[in-house]
């Protein structure tokens, strides 16, 4: 077959075929194709939230599983994330306009002395995709940045990230400060990063250690559900 005959015309696919194709395109990190797919579905009358969850988040969920299972590696995940970012850029303003459901609010940042942000950025994107509002504090955050953000009263969840053995203990500094200020129990604290483990998360007083972005989303959802149950009980 010629290359021309092989080429898939996204606009000619049915809705179902197109969402499956978008999962493939996301997997392959094809940003332009994702942007095109998002626009086609919107033109066909899909709600932005539906495009987000059925085409993008589902596609990234598959990427997350294959990353966890060692089939995909960091570069492929970054390309997929970049493609999703392209789609999100189109959807974000529309989601705000259409009042898509919000599961909760999170503030996230890499701790002081650490400039690594790939994992944090993936978590941010996956959390946004799952329906959380996320404020990203960026890298190298002293405790004051976290406390100031939390004191604004907008957030349910604090996320902290570190890649270095030398910087991960700083998470405890932040949690201890929250305890001193009597605000620890007001928030769910999630931590993550390559050298961390569950034991460390428990030892520093976090609510959970999240191995990857997909686990972070699931954990955040569980904690928000518990919180809502407590409120309604």
């Amino acid at each position: 077959m010629s290359e021309e005959e092989d080429e898939i015309i996204l606009s000619e696919l049915s809705d179902e075929e197109l969402t499956l194709q978008m999962h493939d395109d996301l997997y392959d990190g094809l940003k332009e194709e994702i942007e095109e797919g998002v626009n086609i579905l919107l033109e066909r009358g899909w709600q932005p939230y539906e495009v987000l969850t059925k085409a993008l988040v589902e596609g990234m969920r598959i990427v997350g599983i294959d990353f966890r299972d060692g089939i995909l590696f960091v570069p492929e995940v970054l390309l997929a994330a970049n493609a999703m970012k392209g789609g999100m850029a189109i959807l974000k303003p529309l989601l705000a306009e259409t009042g898509a459901p919000r599961l909760g609010n999170m503030v996230i940042g890499t701790v002081k002395g650490d400039i690594h942000d790939i994992g944090k950025n993936l978590v941010t994107m996956m959390m946004e995709g799952a329906g959380f509002e996320v404020k990203d504090l960026g890298i190298n955050n002293p405790v004051e940045n976290y406390i100031e953000a939390l004191e604004s009263g907008e957030f349910d969840i604090l996320g902290m990230s570190a890649l270095l053995t030398t910087t991960m203990p700083y998470m405890k500094v932040v949690i201890d400060t929250m305890v001193e200020k009597g605000m620890r129990d007001d928030y769910t604290v999630l931590v993550g990063g390559a050298p961390l483990n569950e034991e460390f998360g428990k030892a520093i007083g976090a609510d959970a250690y999240c191995r990857d972005a997909a686990v972070a989303v699931e954990t955040a959802k569980e904690f928000m559900a518990k919180k809502h149950n407590q409120v309604s009980a």
Binding site: V74, P75, E76, L78, L79, H116, D117, I139
Partner: peptide, 19 residues
């Protein structure tokens, strides 16, 4: 190679931009 930069040099700044 493990960072995928041989195949996707465009990832360089995403990976090393903070250094």
């Amino acid at each position: 190679k493990p960072m995928g930069l041989d195949r996707h040099p465009e990832l360089r700044d995403m990976l090393f931009g903070n250094y």
